[in-house]
Write a protein that binds this DNA or RNA. Structure first.
Lengths: 258, 258
DNA sequence: ATATTTTTATCGTTTTATGAGAAAATCTCA
DNA sequence: TGAGATTTTCTCATAAAACGATAAAAATAT
């Protein structure tokens, strides 16, 4: 094992199903000697990525809370977009969750969300949870922002069976990009509808989406156009802010403010 | 440079004041060759800790959002405490922010918070922001949960001048522990009052606090006892939940659920 | 199209990581 | 309290990886 993966493969073990690990368990899972792991874990504890708990077990450490904040304060998508999620909610006249999501490897991940107080339902697009690329308006809108080559490759990897229908599948994303809206019903959560607008900043290399999740039974021909309009106009504003940030970057570059 | 610090000292550069860095800037800041940094950064980008942006600059990557979620789903303090922050808010009859904070190295950090919708003020105890140990009720309540030796050492490090008053300063923490409440006025933010209850789980090694931040001008002799009571009883419940989690841990240990 | 900048690759040298085993520290439980 | 068990750290020889100077390639700017 080499480089940063020595640490990251330890980190990936810690999830909801396995909140704590002993060195012996890690040693078995990763096929690495205990003496090496004790050293690595000691380093990670010192860095606050892990911390020790009862029964000689280890759990995730608080460093991630600090860096989540740093990201919120520095990431151009979160900076530009999250301030619009609450106003967007107020433009939508039914229980709703608004979501800012982005490409995350071969998944899509929500990076900011707001929920109207009257919303009782739960959506699977939780903050920080990797979600499939090809299901749900939120994901499809993200995918639609990518170059054709990349979309094709991702479709192929996600469903290696449908080699022939590739072009047919791709057509959907062309359409989303053209219309500026994707709407899907129950593809992620039964009874819920996702409506999403693609979000892009070519300059910053950002491929994302802005979406509203509502209950299928609350959606009607009066509300739908309001949601479409609210998403589209908000998305345009967010892209405007991102463009501004990109400009700031460029301008401040020679100054090297440090 | 050695071990995990090769990576963490790069990460620590990225904050609100410096959201993006070029390799040349990092090279100057860390006195490390560009060729080494290009290799390290490539690894960190592959791990989603960093990502590249315009003008050959790099910014923090989305991994931290994912691990923030993992922490929320696995950390015993957050798991036990965050569900009480909203109910606690409802027991307090004035604009208020409720906070779960914990020891974080030589600082105190908020790991969960709720804000009443009517609250207009901002508190410095933002989620994920390291705060001084010796100022504010939130911090003092955390400190009060530590063993005497550790408190003394931390006081000494924080204010190396007051060698003589150590015992006097320590008395405050004894008192907080005895009474179960700390209240401070304007020590962190002018015009705001912090009221905090210590939170402890010896079994899990957790030293934390539960606090309510309110406006000084809204606080009176009718409200204060209500806040004290709400904090104390909620703190006891959270400690109960943590104790339960500790027990689960112990029980599930031989089973090694994997 | 050319010049400049950024990024990757190569490679000899230096440094660090690895893992087995010993030692120390901590925990368990009578 | 103390013997036994477990967990963690330490030591050290060997193997492996990191470092950084330089060259090559790729990407950007002019």
């Amino acid at each position: 094992m080499t480089g940063i993966t020595r640490y990251t493969r330890i980190l990936t073990l810690f999830d909801q199903a396995h909140p704590t690990w002993t060195v012996a368990e890690i040693s078995a899972a990763l096929d690495t000697s205990a003496s090496t792991l004790y050293r690595l874990i000691r380093e990670m504890v010192a860095a606050d990525m892990l911390e020790s708990t009862v029964e000689s077990r280890y759990r995730l450490g608080p460093l991630f809370v600090e860096y989540y904040r740093r990201l919120k304060l520095t990431d151009p998508l979160v900076l530009s977009g999250s301030k619009f999620l609450r106003p967007l909610l107020n433009q939508i006249p039914c229980p709703c969750t608004t979501i800012l999501a982005r490409l995350y490897g071969k998944t899509v991940m929500c990076v900011a969300e707001e929920r109207s107080s009257i919303a009782t339902f739960a959506t699977s697009y939780e903050l920080g949870r990797p979600m499939p690329l090809l299901r749900g308006a939120t994901s499809k809108a993200v995918l639609s922002t990518l170059p054709k080559r990349q979309i094709m490759s991702l479709i192929e990897q996600a469903s290696p069976n449908a080699q022939n229908d590739l072009d047919a599948l791709y057509a959907e994303f062309t359409s989303i990009r053209k219309i500026g809206i994707s709407e899907t019903h129950g593809q992620v959560d039964a009874g819920l509808v996702g409506i999403a607008a693609p979000l892009r900043s070519a300059e910053l290399g950002i491929n994302a989406s802005l979406s509203a999740i509502v209950e299928e039974r609350k959606l009607n021909e009066e509300i739908r156009p309001q949601i479409y309009a609210a998403l589209s106009s908000t998305a345009r504003m967010i892209e405007g802010f991102m463009a501004e940030l990109a400009l700031d970057e460029t301008k401040s570059n020679p100054a090297k403010s440090s």
